[in-house]
Design a binder for these strands. Structure first.
Length: 212
DNA sequence: CGGAAGATTTCT
DNA sequence: GAAATCTTCCGA
C-alpha cells in the first residue's frame, strides 16, 4: 500500500522518522527500481536556518513546499547533483524531508548502469547518488507521490513479496538514531538540531561516523 | 546584473 | 584536501 496523503501531512519530524524502513519506488516508463529508506533529514521552514524555505517566498524554487504533504521537492546543487525531498505537513507550511540514503533492493542492475558503478554499497548511500540511481531529476519536481512515477510503500506491501524482495522485521525504537544534520555548518544554532534520522549501523548510510 | 555559495561526489 | 559545475539568491 502506498503511503497516503494523511501520512505526509503529519508534522515533519514524525514523517522524517516514520519514513525509515519504508520503500521508495521509482517507475520510469516501466523500469522499476526500489530502495529501502535508511536515512532522512527534516527541514522546518521559517524556524530552521538550514532550510531552503527559511527565508523564501511561495514563488521561488521552494514553491512546492507550500503545498500539503506528499509531493516531491527536487533541487539541483553544486552544478551536478539532484536531491530528493518529500514535502510534509499542511498546506502553507513549507517543510520537507530530505531522503539521504537508501538500501538498494530491486533493479540493482539498472542502478549500477545509471551510476556507472558496480559496488552495491556505493549506489544509493547519499542524496545525490540515490537520485542518480533512481533517475530522479527536475522532471519530477512537484510530482504527486500518490501517483505512479515515484511513490513510497509500507514494508507490508505485497509488491515486495511479488518481487521476491527479502523482508526485514519492523523497525523498533532502539534501532532508530537521531543525530545532527550533514553539511549545514552555516546554519548557526540550527546546525545542532537533531533532525537527522538513521537506521543504526545500516551499511548504506551516507556518513559512517555519527556527528557530535 | 555580477558574484558567491551551496542539504554533494569523486578523485588525489 | 580540492575540483567539478550551474542554479539561485542577494547585494549593488
Amino acid at each position: 500500500m502506498k503511503l497516503s496523503r494523511s501520512f505526509y501531512t503529519q508534522d515533519t519530524l514524525t514523517v522524517a522518522k516514520a519514513l525509515l524502513g519504508k520503500y521508495l519506488v521509482r517507475n520510469q516508463n516501466g523500469i522499476i527500481t526500489i530502495g529501502r529508506i535508511v536515512e532522512t533529514e527534516a527541514y522546518l521552514g521559517p524556524k530552521d536556518k538550514a532550510a531552503h524555505s527559511y527565508k523564501a517566498s511561495p514563488f521561488g524554487r521552494t514553491n512546492v513546499m507550500y503545498q500539503e504533504g506528499g509531493f516531491a521537492y527536487v533541487y539541483f546543487i553544486y552544478g551536478m547533483h539532484y536531491c530528493f525531498n518529500v514535502v510534509s505537513n499542511q498546506k502553507e507550511i513549507p517543510e520537507a524531508v530530505l531522503i539521504r540514503a537508501l538500501e538498494p533492493v530491486y533493479g540493482i542492475d539498472v542502478m549500477q548502469k545509471r551510476r556507472r558503478q558496480e559496488s552495491i554499497k556505493n549506489l544509493t548511500n547519499g542524496p545525490g547518488k540515490l537520485c542518480q540511481a533512481m533517475d530522479i531529476t527536475k522532471e519530477l519536481y512537484g510530482e504527486d507521490l500518490l501517483k505512479d512515477s515515484l511513490y513510497i510503500i509500507y514494508e507490508t506491501d505485497p509488491l515486495l513479496k511479488t518481487l521476491k524482495i527479502p523482508s526485514y522485521p519492523l523497525l523498533s525504537e532502539e534501532q532508530i538514531l537521531c543525530t545532527k544534520r550533514i553539511n549545514i555548518q552555516y546554519a548557526e544554532e540550527a546546525k545542532d538540531f537533531l533532525y537527522r534520522f538513521i537506521i543504526k549501523d545500516n551499511p548504506h548510510l551516507s556518513v559512517k561516523k555519527i556527528p557530535v
